[in-house]
Design a binder for these strands. Structure first.
Lengths: 251, 251
DNA sequence: CCAAAAGTGTTATGTCTACACCCATGA
DNA sequence: TCATGGGTGTAGACATAACACTTTTGG
């Protein structure tokens, strides 16, 4: 899954010449793997939290926007390139020493599937791990306040799926409505009625656009499905409501 | 409106003994004044942006949470105390010099009405100004990236009113449903049908609770209205939808 | 009595949910 | 022909918007 990378080592420090900015950026990168939602984690090889898992993180450089910083940190520490990174919030790290990590700003990104991950110098492992495992404190010990950041990222993703078309970012360029539905089911943690889902998606102009092509039928048969691509709409009006979180089947 | 304060001058710098944290906090404080929405601004008496208006802002101190920092900065620079401050987002200041304001974290608060505002040392004026004027670049020149922060704050307030009971924070402890409706109209920038609004608010359990008391009738007469107080519900289910922003009457 | 504002009723229209049912494919 | 999954139909429950109407006050 993760391969040792050969490129030059990132410093993971502030840019030489610039003053220490004390601003860290964290990346919450979600990806679908089959019907399962996974998140990108790295295992730290250096203090603090050596040996713990963590979200990809690093320091912003002087003169760099936060978006550029998180994209660079993500690429340098895992080799992963994310298209759109959306700000999740700012976190005052409880373990902050005065200059380093005075504050960290978390960003959220969606990928269609798990991609090859580099293990950068300073880390001992890096991979996409199932959400359920990543959020379980008994099984995964996350560095800094990354447990809270990850929880917030999941909650943000859940409401994003209700109100925007961002779910298509968790699908490949061409996808069936079933694939899109499994995204909703994986993120929300409960099943979604297929006929009604189909109608609501197609009734929202610009959510998905038919490609005219068909997907191959599954190995067990079944009617071949129409292939769609993401449309230009961003806001879903009306929204796609998830189940009230009374009976939780999710994480 | 604004009174000169006599208390000790805040330093508006990082705490003595702590290292420079480079983390600024900004406060977006909304208040209702009659049927109008206003925002708290201060006129800067010091560089940078001397003479410009700005949101109350200052630096976080070492060891201080962001919430504590913004509450302290708000109180020190205007004398205003806000109950609940909600994080709006992190902004990389385009005009940042390496150590100061490397990043600023904005917070949002609601007050029932304009309160007395102190003019702290380092500022030449401070008051609640109408949203329309504050957002109009030709009439109000805001320091830093505060124009964008203010726009984001208004947009956040608009969606908060749709999905949560936060609108009650813009009302006094006891209020009529008409008062609550004017809050929605002021923030959304369009009128709301009174009968339907009433029904939806009362149908949402825990949104408002009747006090049993009645408000006095207005100067021009009219049936006296029931007084309500805020309930314990936070999320509105179903939401109170604002008008689609096709015909904008607002800001 | 009139104007003003609170509050109730009503109706047409739309939306959501749950589930029955049909269609096309692989084995 | 059967299991599997794609796709359509539909009926009841529920929510919404628009507006007519009644009630209670001050002038």
């Amino acid at each position: 899954m993760a391969s040792r990378r050969n490129t030059a080592a990132p410093t993971d420090k502030s840019a030489p010449g610039g003053a220490a900015t004390a601003v860290a950026v964290d990346a919450v990168v979600f990806a679908m793997d089959g019907a399962e939602l996974k998140v990108l984690l790295v295992q730290r090889g250096l203090a603090p939290f050596k040996g713990s898992w963590a979200l990809p993180t690093g320091n912003a450089r002087a003169g760099e926007t936060l978006e550029a910083a998180v994209a660079r940190v993500l690429a340098e520490s895992t080799g992963v390139r994310a298209g759109f990174l959306e700000q999740l919030g700012a976190y005052r790290d409880p373990s902050h020493d005065a200059l380093e990590r005075a504050v960290s700003v978390a960003y959220l990104a969606f990928l269609p599937g798990p991609v090859d991950v580099d293990v950068a110098p300073g880390t001992t492992d890096a991979s996409f791990v199932p959400m359920r495992r990543a959020l379980d404190r008994r099984r995964t010990d996350l560095a800094f306040d990354h447990h809270q950041v990850l929880r917030d990222g999941l909650e943000r993703a859940r409401t994003e799926l209700e109100h925007t078309s961002r779910a298509t970012a968790l699908c490949p360029p061409a996808f069936t409505l079933s694939r899109l539905r499994t995204v909703y089911e994986a993120v929300w943690g409960h099943s979604v009625d297929a006929p009604n889902f189909r109608r609501k998606v197609l009734a929202t102009p610009g959510f998905v656009v038919p490609t005219g092509r068909m997907a191959a039928a599954g190995p067990e048969g079944g009617k071949p499905a129409q292939l769609y691509r993401a449309g230009k709409a961003v806001v879903l009006q009306p929204p796609l409501y998830r189940q009230q979180s009374g009976g939780r089947r999710g994480f």
